[in-house]
């Protein structure tokens, strides 16, 4: 029991320590002046904290992800449910979704900028584009997987189309939608960084590109990257937490 405990905490710490030491040694050995050592990155983080930009940039990035993904949920989930319920809708809409999905959201950035100018709406639009397709397809397949008996039971108790969607289709899809949301937030987090490099002047992506362009501050670049990694991990862990809530746990059989 205690040995397992020790392994649980010790092994990851050991592996991280080895990696950080290797990184440190590599910097020392090569005598590089541009690439920062771990200590320099920690100092860089401290500097960002003192300058007070970290909180604002972090909130900016998070707000864009939340807005873009939120809009995608509001549009994609009803659309996807409808496609899951009506075969004709799925047949007609599927080619559209399949064609638009592989277009990198970033590739839309010139159009986004010409439509909305450099700034918040353009970034939110790009994240919306990144999130809408995975959510729509997930909602479609979630509804297609609902057992017929659940729909029949709902209709038997006299539910109309709206009530059926709200009380049967939606709750039955939620476990699948949570999985999709986790994947989608991962993609959105990936896209927001790039979008901020292209289309705005705040946020963690901007922090990285700005640190590089304004004086080759690679310590700040790496600090920004680590921060992006940690926040991304925290978002993922947060959605995983939701999967443990009692009303949805039925959809996640124990490993």
């Amino acid at each position: 029991m205690t040995r397992r405990r020790l392994e649980h905490w010790g092994l990851p710490l050991l592996a991280s320590a080895v990696l950080v030491s290797l990184w440190h040694l590599a910097v020392v050995q090569t005598g590089t002046k541009v690439f920062p050592s771990p200590a320099a990155v920690v100092r860089g983080l401290g500097e960002l904290l003192r300058r007070g930009v970290l909180g604002t940039y972090l909130l900016d990035s998070l707000r864009r992800v939340a807005l873009g993904t939120g809009l995608a949920v509001l549009l994609g989930v009803p659309l996807g449910s409808w496609m899951g319920l009506r075969r004709e809708a799925a047949l007609a809409m599927d080619p559209v979704v399949q064609w638009l999905r592989p277009i990198s959201p970033l590739a839309w950035s010139p159009l986004a900028i010409v439509l909305w100018g450099v700034g918040e709406p353009a970034t939110v639009f790009l994240i919306f584009l990144a999130a809408i397709f995975p959510l729509t397809t997930a909602a479609t397949s979630a509804v297609q997987a609902i057992p017929e008996v659940h729909l029949r039971a709902g209709r038997n108790f006299g539910l109309g189309p709206g009530a059926l969607w709200l009380r049967v289709l939606l709750p039955a899809s939620i476990p699948d939608l949570l999985v999709a949301l986790r994947i989608t937030l991962g993609i959105a987090w990936l896209v927001v960084v790039a979008a901020e490099m292209l289309a705005v002047d705040s946020g963690l992506g901007y922090l990285i590109i700005d640190a590089r362009n304004a004086g080759k501050r690679y310590d700040l670049v790496v600090a920004g990257m680590l921060l992006i990694g940690c926040v991304g991990w925290a978002i993922d862990a947060g959605v995983r937490r939701l999967e443990r809530l009692r009303p949805v746990r039925w959809g996640f059989p124990e490993q």
């Binding site: 008996v149 659940h150 039971a153 709750p171 939620i174 009303p247 949805v248 039925w250």
Partner: peptide
């Protein structure tokens, strides 16, 4: 009311 096999219960309720 139609009574299905036990899989007719709503798992989210």
């Amino acid at each position: 009311i139609f009574v299905f096999q036990e899989r007719g219960t709503f798992p989210w309720l």
